[in-house]
Design a protein around this nucleic acid. Structure first.
Lengths: 337, 337
DNA sequence: TTGTAGGCGTTATCAA
DNA sequence: TTGATAACGCCTACAA
């Protein structure tokens, strides 16, 4: 196991200079056909592979993209990661993966790690609490793209997400149009963009249909933990409990379903249910759930394309905000009142 | 946005040489207390962060670990990734993520990418088809750890997996002991270690209980696609269909369940079911599924510890094979015949 | 069209 | 305890 070949070894074996090798490697500058062949042969013979670190150091930038996701335990993010990885490979980008577990401290730590410029760009689902570090990234010329959510203070950052307001409005209208007047929503925290936007869509639908808003039916829940279940239980304990419910907090769908099952609430008999995110198991449970399907492949594709373009400075500086429509899937968890 | 500080800038500002800075940075070699303080101040003031690429080039090795997983769409791998990322951070290791989608070509491509020594180690779920490249990695002194599965020809590589034989035997015995004599198994492909080992456990249980093996009840299915459903349908169409079934192919559990539901096979009335891997939704569907729970956190922890140790050459060369026991969870999808 | 040489930011060796 | 200085492997003017 002698030590691996370097560009110099290749040059020597091919009887040329290192610049020639470098040029055939990167397609930069001219090379005479015969020499090119010799170089290629040498590379083949020596099983030469350019050292990533050396190249990065020399060029000053990296082809690695940091992917900072909330939580791979949530199928939504897991599938997002799957697509991002695939799209990144198609563009010869490497993916450095980290998770925040929705914890600002972990996010801060991750961001600090990335500040060493080991990445040339970032794709992330921000917790909303590390504005300064995200800004520092930008100051270091490391382009970032927020996916799924965004942060109000960071309005210079590109964003790719679904049409949250519209989607929530559609889901709510679906229930209202079926005679439900008591419709609840479990959202994400109200200091997250998805939380506020989906509540806004909910309220918009209510207004459109002339239904009064009841404070007690709008319940945010953290992404982590089981709070979503309590919150629904509390709604159901009201004098006039909701007959329709929108679970707009992807991460809480599971616990809500579990609670509902344990409380023996019949769906859609006792409660009509619309959930955000269409998991592979959404149609495995009984009844199959009416859902807002987020086009994960589009979210991933746009995110990767965006960082890629930014990394090659192929884009005007103005921040891009890409919002893709979500699909509404009516199944069997909703019915007329 | 002036360009980022280098070690030289820090040295200059602190009024010392780069060597001193390097030493306080890495705790290598002695530094007088007052100088150390000055250096720390300078680092703080300049928001200095050592360039990862430069360090890597100089030291000749990387603190990045490649994580090559089959498919993040499968909750088992997604949760594994989640834990690996967490454990890696605790050890200051970075995770470079790639997926094979169970495709040997993609695996080959990924491994080729890694051959540039951008990673100092690997954790992966091998497809079983790129023996030469895995060997080349080893020749380059890049330690690899297989997790979940292994490859027979690569017996020099560390492995972390569950006790596949035992787990399958337990699952099978559970059914046999409830009076089922026609017990089927849907396994992974028989050219994968998990496939053969779980079938072996199944056969062992059969032997123990003196039940004859029926070729037609042992059906491997690829990890990708919907073949698992067909295979079960075929079993059920036999003259003497099985009354018990072990789905030992994690990736096929979903499609099998879906098919069973569509065919209106009552569980456990018509068919007693044991599945491998206990997903968060395994107890959301009805009936809750009896399952083999793989201790994902242990798999992740051992894998990360192993690469970490290998990367620091803290381990004797002999390959390690760590097999952790899986837990058997009886729920409501199995019953006496 | 080719080759030489300097630089990228760190670490490490070895005098002082 | 400190400080020059030579690697590390690649890219890229610049000269030939």
């Amino acid at each position: 196991m002698k030590k691996a070949a370097t560009i110099r070894d290749v040059a020597a074996r091919a009887g040329v200079s290192v610049s020639v090798v470098s040029r055939v490697l990167n397609g930069t500058g001219p090379v005479a056909a015969p020499k090119r062949a010799q170089v290629l042969d040498a590379i083949e013979a020596l099983a030469y592979r350019p050292r990533a670190a050396a190249r990065q150091l020399s060029q000053g930038h990296s082809d690695t993209v940091g992917l900072l996701l909330a939580d791979l335990t949530n199928p939504f993010f897991a599938r997002l990661a799957d697509r991002v990885v695939a799209d990144a490979r198609a563009r010869d980008l490497q993916i450095l993966l980290m998770t925040t577990q929705e914890d600002p401290h972990l996010e801060a730590q991750a961001l600090d790690t990335l500040l060493d410029r080991s990445v040339g760009g970032m794709i992330g689902t921000p917790t909303g609490h590390n504005v300064e570090r995200w800004e520092k990234l930008a100051a270091l010329d490391i382009p970032a793209v927020f996916v799924d959510r965004t942060v109000a203070e960071l309005d210079q950052v590109d964003v790719v997400s679904i049409e949250n307001v519209q989607s929530a409005a559609t889901a709510t209208r679906h229930l209202l149009d079926r005679g439900h007047t008591r419709v609840g929503i479990v959202s994400g925290p109200l200091d997250t963009s998805t939380g506020v936007e989906r509540v806004r869509g909910y309220e918009q639908a209510l207004r459109e249909r002339g239904v009064a808003r009841d404070e007690r039916l709008v319940r945010p829940a953290p992404f982590r933990g089981d709070r979503g279940a309590d919150v629904v239980a509390e709604m159901l304990a009201l004098d006039e409990p909701p007959t329709g419910l929108v679970v707009a907090n992807t991460a809480q769908v599971r616990v809500v379903l579990k609670m509902l099952a344990q409380a023996r609430i019949a769906i859609p008999g006792d409660l009509s249910l619309v959930v955000f995110d269409d998991n592979p198991w959404t149609d495995l449970i009984r009844p199959p759930l009416t859902a807002v399907r987020q086009p994960i492949d589009m979210l991933a594709l746009h995110s990767v394309e965006l960082v890629h373009a930014r990394m090659r400075q192929k884009l005007p500086p103005a921040p891009r905000r890409i919002r893709v429509p979500a699909e509404f899937l009516e199944r069997s968890s909703t019915t007329h009142l």
